[in-house]
């Protein structure tokens, strides 16, 4: 049964990208276990505003696990202790009465802190802009079933396409590597005939952009796939490696 709990929050507060940050501790009483983690933060912010303090800045948008905006490193896990959910889908029933919850922003050189718990994840957009697309000439829309695609490939591509680009993979990685994200974005297109045409150009451009932005080198610890809210598999990273090595050998 859900009940109301009292919790202690240790939240990272940082005024701006160049400012020095520190943890602040807040007590929050009578939090419904039926509320989501972000609703709990909303309650905290209302309390802070009433006390005349600055509310905690955090990213959020759809609050249903599809936009990839929410982040937060909660008690040592990106998107909190629950598996296969984003922070907005995390519920307070995962925490018990009297718990101390530590909330940190993503920490990776690729994701600098903007303020408090908000980080700049524009790096992922830059990687997508480098090649994570299919070029098409506009005109008549072709029939979706005109090109036969095996069920297996369609499923694998769909699993890769589940990536919402939230950044949990790079945040979880001890190497600050963005490989799971890029492997998902490369795989979802490389597996389909429409994406094959530009496959080698795409993988080279995206890896070059990733390296340029200073993300780390993957050492296959698997932290990314374990923490991924969409359970994207590291078999995509094997495919990315394969695609990249083959593309480079063809040059």
């Amino acid at each position: 049964m859900d009940k109301n709990i009292n919790i202690t929050l240790k939240v990272w507060r940082q005024k701006g990208p160049k400012e020095k940050g520190a943890f602040e501790t807040y007590k929050l009483n009578d939090v419904s276990q039926g509320s989501s983690f972000l609703e709990m933060l909303d309650v905290l912010n209302e309390q802070l505003i009433r006390e005349g303090k600055e509310p905690v800045a955090f990213d959020h948008d759809c609050r249903e696990g599809i936009c990839g905006m929410c982040s937060l490193y909660i008690n040592g896990h990106p998107h909190g202790p629950d598996s296969a959910v984003t922070t907005c889908q995390l519920h307070m029933r995962k925490f018990s009465d009297g718990a101390t919850i530590t909330v940190e922003p993503w920490r990776s050189a690729g994701f600098p802190v903007i303020r408090d718990l908000m980080v700049d994840r524009y790096a992922y957009d830059k990687i997508i802009q480098a090649g994570g697309f299919v070029s098409v000439n506009t005109g008549g829309v072709p029939d979706a079933n005109a090109i036969p695609i095996s069920k297996k490939d369609a499923d694998l591509a769909m699993d890769a396409a589940a990536c919402i680009g939230c950044g949990a993979c790079a945040a979880a990685c001890k190497n600050g590597s963005a490989m799971l994200f890029i492997s998902a974005k490369v795989s979802q297109l490389a597996l389909l005939p429409q994406g094959r045409t530009e496959a080698s150009r795409r993988v080279k451009a995206m890896i070059a952009k990733m390296d340029e932005l200073g993300f780390g080198n993957c050492t296959n610890t698997r932290s990314c796939e374990v923490e991924c809210p969409k359970e994207v598999s590291i078999s995509n990273i094997a495919r990315l490696n394969r695609e990249f090595i083959v593309a480079k050998l063809q040059d």
């Binding site: 490193y73 600050g176 610890t221 932290s223």
Partner: peptide
């Protein structure tokens, strides 16, 4: 990789289930 991790480290570090100790 250390540089890519950034200068700030996490205050709480947990090795998630499914991640081998050796790999890290």
């Amino acid at each position: 990789n250390r540089r890519a991790r950034g200068r700030k480290r996490y205050a709480v570090n947990v090795r998630p289930k499914g991640v081998e100790w050796a790999s890290q």
